[in-house]
Nucleic acid binder design. Structure first.
Lengths: 206, 206
DNA sequence: GTCTATAAGGAGATAGAC
DNA sequence: GTCTATCTCCTTATAGAC
């Protein structure tokens, strides 16, 4: 932690960590204050409510993630290579922070409306939503060319995201629950990624 | 609700509903009491703690689900037909109660140890764990025969469960969020099931 | 077995001193 | 800007009357 940050930044920083670790409802403003090293009233002085603090933490974070969703699609290669890139990309994003996938899924389940807010924000952004339409078009073109079977773009995307995200949800639990053997974990994720790539690429072939 | 049930049964019945709808931490014993139509002290008289009430509700429920996991594998047909049955079976179980998938995933994320308890319980039961070993054997045999590509049984099972469960997590949200159009929902789940079956069956072929 | 009352604690938020 | 003190509400759990 950078001790030179001002308190407002430190609160954002600590709140992000605690929300990720214990969820929104599992984290109290008192606890955030304690971790920051100030009193609880100060949290409310800067952010007014816990809910607003949540948004101030995660809106830029989600924006950042959504900003780079079209990157893997723009890289060179045929359709199968592009799908390979997308899966690679999702795995690398979630691997940067192992708390991200469980956190997002948990909050999505508990507060669906919070996340339709992010979805709407995504759809209203022309640059971002055009990236998705490009993906839709690519899927349709490929079906027309006869290289992949009939499938809707939204289903393909859901398949990819489900398989990826669930790998991270099960990861810290079933396998390396007792030991924090990060080497085991890396090997497990590597195997899951290969499996997902194999299943999806093979699964959409005609 | 059967008014002839005794209070203990009514508490179990109401607690199950509320836990499923709002999660363990989102449900208070006061709320359960109110829904049952008694006072909150009575919950503790019968079940001592909220935690014990949780176990008393969900242990028989999980046992029941786990009891029937090997059913689809025992049905007639080749390996691909069996996998088809498994996916059909998971979808039909989760479709019986739309709250089940989000509930289980949410609690799994928030309390991993609670669910390793269920996993251990499953593995210690000879009849149940032998069903899984039978599945492992079937996968290996099929690889040897050259009909499917190299894949570990645990990965195949994770793929199937991830794709199935996530269909139910996204279901009540993205699609039919505003309207409670259960016809739309049924169509959506039908499409997801076809997609999952198509992806998995095609994806494991050599 | 069922109730009321209450203990003991934690939550989010605000008032007001400095 | 940062603090202490406090308000209000809600939680789980228990004591004790009936």
């Amino acid at each position: 932690m950078d001790k030179n940050q001002n308190i407002e930044e430190r609160i954002l920083w600590v709140a992000e960590r605690l929300f990720l670790e214990k969820g929104f409802s599992g984290t109290s403003t008192t606890e955030i204050a304690k971790a920051v090293g100030c009193n609880q009233a100060l949290i409310h002085y800067y952010f007014r409510t816990k809910e607003k603090l949540f948004w101030d933490v995660f809106t830029p974070k989600m924006d950042h993630i959504l900003d780079y969703l079209d990157t893997p699609l723009q890289e060179a290669g045929d359709f199968f290579q592009k799908i390979h890139n997308v899966i690679d990309f999702y795995f690398s994003i979630l691997e940067l922070d192992s708390r991200l996938a469980p956190f997002i899924v948990n909050e999505l389940i508990m507060h669906p409306t919070r996340w339709s807010h992010f979805r709407d924000r995504f759809l209203r952004d022309e640059r971002r939503s055009s990236a998705y339409r490009k993906f839709e078009k690519a899927v349709e073109d490929e079906i027309d060319r006869g290289t992949i079977r009939e499938i809707q773009a939204i289903d393909l995307l859901m398949d990819i995201m489900s398989l990826t995200v669930s790998s991270f949800i099960v990861a810290p639990r079933g396998y390396a629950l007792n030991e924090c053997d990060s080497d085991e974990r890396t090997k497990y994720l590597q195997r899951r990624k290969s499996d997902v790539i194999g299943l999806v690429l093979n699964g959409i072939k005609k």
